[in-house]
Nucleic acid binder design. Structure first.
Length: 108
DNA sequence: ACAGTGACTACAT
DNA sequence: AATGTAGCCACTG
């Protein structure tokens, strides 16, 4: 395998349930590399060229802010995808973020 | 092999 | 509360 780390990140992101979100830090911690939250973000940056596709819109920073929305085709794509899952987004901020937060550790 | 980079976080001012 | 600085580490050129 040529980049197990990225692959592991993608796997976890695909495990995120419909209508839920998680954070970069949580994913990093689930991989046993709690200090590599930045790498998770970088991995997501390549997620668009990976198969099968990864629901990157379900990954936000620890504040529930859509920091990576500009990396999507259009700046509003991420918010719309979330909205289609019943997740309310206001000014790039996920509403009731704490309630829909999903911890990947729970599935491990 | 070395230096730069980044969809993050935590701490400091 | 808001802004700035500093660790963090796998990947790329």
């Amino acid at each position: 395998m040529k980049s197990d780390f990225y692959t592991q990140v993608y796997e976890i992101v695909r495990l995120i349930p419909f209508g839920r979100v998680t954070t970069y830090g949580s994913i990093a911690k689930a991989l046993g590399a709690g200090k590599s939250s930045r790498l998770v973000g970088i991995a997501m940056n390549h997620s668009h060229e990976v198969e099968p596709s990864v629901p990157a819109h379900r990954v936000v920073n620890r504040n529930g802010l859509l920091t990576g929305k500009h990396h999507f085709t259009d700046a509003l794509t991420m918010q719309e995808l979330l909205a289609s899952e019943g997740i309310l987004v206001k000014d790039d901020q996920i509403q009731d973020f704490r309630s829909i937060m999903w911890d990947p550790m729970e599935e491990m």
